[in-house]
Design a protein around this nucleic acid. Structure first.
Ligand SMILES: NC(=O)c1ccc[n+]([C@@H]2O[C@H](COP(=O)([O-])OP(=O)(O)OC[C@H]3O[C@@H](n4cnc5c(N)ncnc54)[C@H](O)[C@@H]3O)[C@@H](O)[C@H]2O)c1
Ligand SMILES: NC(=O)c1ccc[n+]([C@@H]2O[C@H](COP(=O)([O-])OP(=O)(O)OC[C@H]3O[C@@H](n4cnc5c(N)ncnc54)[C@H](O)[C@@H]3O)[C@@H](O)[C@H]2O)c1
Lengths: 219, 219
DNA sequence: ATTTTCTTGTTATTAAAATAACAGTTAATA
DNA sequence: TATTAACTGTTATTTTAATAACAAGAAAAT
């Protein structure tokens, strides 16, 4: 295992490599070339090889990469040996959709608790995961050794609840509320549909899109 | 209006500037300094000023930026004068959650149609938006001048439906299926929760997170 | 009036990411 | 056994994004 942090983008791609590699295994393939893996994700073979170099893995020269080995290696880097546990905080429309998706797609990250403050749903299960009252956050996060949190509460509660999450011992948070957070004590990732959509709107405008195409042609 | 494309990250931040600026207007503020705007998003004042410079807007030296002017300017850049229309394709759990969110938060991008292939829901409305059969995609996209599409169909249909979207005249697509797409003819943005979550898992690992903190201290 | 303070706008520098270039190696082929 | 073809692994270069540095101008203070 390396002593250096991997670039963000490399980590993102590793996650994608693993997903498509699992499918390759299911199809009975044992090895894969960098250009094959690249094609599956519409990126360049060089980028694949560089990423794999960065994680300190090697392929064999005429057979390519051993798929199972590579999956294991990525697993060690991203998920650790003992799989990390995830909680969803605020199990409304978005929280339920995400939970459902995560439950359907087996990953090494398992959602092992969800939290809400709505008395009517506390005690019930969503996709097989029990919903706890938000007041038990710390207790359960500690007991279950949950390290990752998905924040999907209404915006007005985002700041307060995110602090409680860190306080409870959560180490990484993905924030789906449209509220800009600043946390000390946990790694934070932010995502908002509207920002994404407006970015698409900008680059999809005919004038802008054609400029993009021109730039690609020049290369 | 500029003849040069803006950097991706700048466009993303413009979207966020606009959101928080709207809130400032509601609170009766007329002007804002770069350091105030920066604080609201937890970024640096320099980045704010640089972004605003790139869009060709100016503030006044002792009063800061006129908020309404800035909102208008960002609107022209991102949404164009005539607001762009959005369609959601595949109105299942995720599609509904997104639609609900977009309907609640008034933006210049308006969802004006949703599509599905499930007979039971075609003809019904979600958050006030009518669901059409997927076979009418092209007809309605053309008629309504829809330019942006949100793709939330099951993964196995992603490739085929995305082609139909481009064929129908959609110029920008945000793809929430975990399938890597390659399109010619439309700007494409990809987002997947699992990739995001695994990235968080990597950087939240105690050893990695402490390396991150160290790097920040050095600066 | 003159100085000081605070702010913007812009250029210069550094850092991160992607791409390109190419050396090196193995297996197949002649 | 030499030669070629087809890969990987690594370093160098370029591009993109973030940060720093600082000149210049308006208002406030003296
Ligand atoms: N970023 C995005 O892309 C995106 C997309 C859709 C929604 N959202 C945001 O995600 C959040 C959730 O959206 P939604 O549509 O699921 O809303 P929702 O109202 O359906 O769900 C919110 C849930 O949080 C619970 N809740 C409220 N206060 C709480 C508290 N203090 N502690 C714990 N739980 C609490 C509610 O009971 C509810 O179940 C909102 O902030 C919304 O703006 C973001
Ligand atoms: N990327 C992410 O972050 C993320 C998160 C959750 C789900 N997802 C993905 O988003 C997609 C939707 O997820 P979901 O949980 O809403 O699934 P879902 O099954 O609830 O919804 C899918 C919808 O698409 C409709 N559909 C099926 N085939 C269609 C076709 N050919 N044309 C039009 N509509 C069709 C279905 O009738 C259904 O309403 C899936 O691909 C899922 O993997 C992605």
């Amino acid at each position: 295992m390396s002593t250096q942090l991997l670039p963000e983008k490399t980590v993102e791609r590793l996650s994608q490599y693993r997903r498509v590699l699992s499918r390759e295994i299911e199809q009975g393939h044992e090895h894969i070339f960098s250009h094959e893996l690249a094609k599956l994700l519409h990126i360049t073979p060089v980028q694949v090889r560089r990423d794999i170099m960065l994680i300190g893995h090697s392929g064999s020269l005429r057979k390519g990469y051993n798929i199972l080995d590579l999956i294991d290696m990525i697993g060690e880097i991203i998920d650790c040996s003992n799989q990390q546990k995830v909680a969803i905080i605020g199990i409304g429309k978005l929280g339920q959709a995400l939970l459902n998706y995560l439950a359907d797609n087996k990953t090494n990250l398992v959602v092992s608790a969800v939290f809400d403050n709505n008395q009517e749903i506390i005690g019930t299960s969503f996709s097989g995961v029990l919903c706890h009252g938000i007041e038990h956050l710390k207790k359960i996060v500690e007991r279950e050794h949950i390290t990752i949190g998905i924040l999907t509460v209404p915006p007005q509660h985002a700041v307060e609840i995110s602090k409680q999450m860190v306080e409870a011992g959560i180490l990484g948070i993905i924030n789906y509320t449209p509220v800009s957070l600043q946390l000390r004590g946990a790694y934070l990732e932010q995502y908002d549909v509207i920002t994404s959509l407006e970015k698409v709107a900008y680059f999809a405008k005919p004038k802008n899109y054609s400029m993009l195409l021109e730039m690609e042609c020049e290369k």
